[in-house]
Simulated assay, not measured.
Amino acid sequence: MTMPYERTQALLMTRELLKELADGASIEPDLLQRRAAALLKHFPDASHVALSARLLPDTWADPQAKWYESP
């Protein structure tokens, strides 16, 4: 079971990883895959975002709204 601090940490660490990649960091594919898997283990899913949207509508949008398209 993911604890709130783990979910928060995964969200912030995922941002760091994406920033590294956007800045042109070269990360070995195996390492990138391991980091991604570790982050996804505790990353917020749509139900967490939906709850956040209900509690903080000025910060988050409901992922089930019409604008959202699942990949």
Rank of each mutant, 00 (worst) to 15 (best):
A53P: 02
K41W: 11
D45W: 07
P4Y: 03
A36G: 10
A53Q: 02
L40Y: 12
P57H: 05
A37E: 15
P4T: 01
W67A: 13
L17Y: 01
T8A: 14
A65L: 09
K66V: 07
D45G: 11
T2Y: 00
W67E: 15
A37F: 12
P44I: 05
L11W: 09
Q64N: 15
S52N: 06
P71L: 11
V49R: 09
P44T: 04
P71S: 06
L18M: 10
W67Y: 11
R54V: 07
L17M: 11
T8C: 13
P63H: 07
A36V: 15
L21E: 02
L56P: 01
L32D: 09
R15P: 01
A10Y: 00
L55E: 07
F43C: 10
L51E: 15
R15E: 07
L18P: 00
E69R: 15
D45I: 10
Q33T: 11
R35T: 10
A25M: 02
Q9V: 09
Y68N: 12
D58V: 06
P71I: 03
V49T: 10
H42S: 13
L31S: 11
Y68S: 15
L12E: 08
K66G: 11
D58F: 05
S26A: 09
A53C: 02
L56D: 13
G24W: 00
F43R: 04
A53R: 01
A10R: 00
E6I: 02
D23M: 05
W67I: 11
E20T: 02
F43D: 03
P29V: 07
W67L: 14
L21W: 01
R7S: 08
D45P: 00
A25W: 01
L17E: 02
A22E: 15
R54P: 01
Y5I: 10
T14D: 08
E28S: 04
L55P: 00
W67V: 13
W60G: 02
D62N: 14
G24I: 02
L31Y: 03
L56M: 10
D45N: 14
S47Q: 12
A50E: 14
A25C: 02
P63V: 05
P4C: 06
L56T: 05
D30L: 08
P57Y: 03
L31E: 08
S47T: 12
S52M: 15
L11T: 13
L31R: 13
M3W: 13
R35Q: 14
K66A: 14
Q9S: 14
L40N: 09
R35L: 09
W67G: 13
M13W: 04
R15I: 10
Q33H: 08
L17C: 03
A65K: 07
W60S: 04
L55I: 06
T59A: 12
R35C: 07
D45T: 13
P29R: 08
K66E: 13
P44Q: 03
A36S: 06
D23A: 15
P57S: 03
R35S: 12
E28Y: 02
M3R: 14
T14E: 04
Q64L: 09
L12W: 06
S52F: 14
F43E: 06
L31Q: 15
M13G: 02
A37K: 15
P29F: 02
Q64S: 14
M1I: 13
T2V: 10
L40T: 05
R54Q: 12
S47K: 14
P4W: 04
D23F: 00
L31F: 09
G24F: 01
L39V: 08
M1V: 15
L39I: 07
E20A: 04
P4M: 04
S26M: 09
P57W: 03
E20D: 15
D58S: 08
F43I: 05
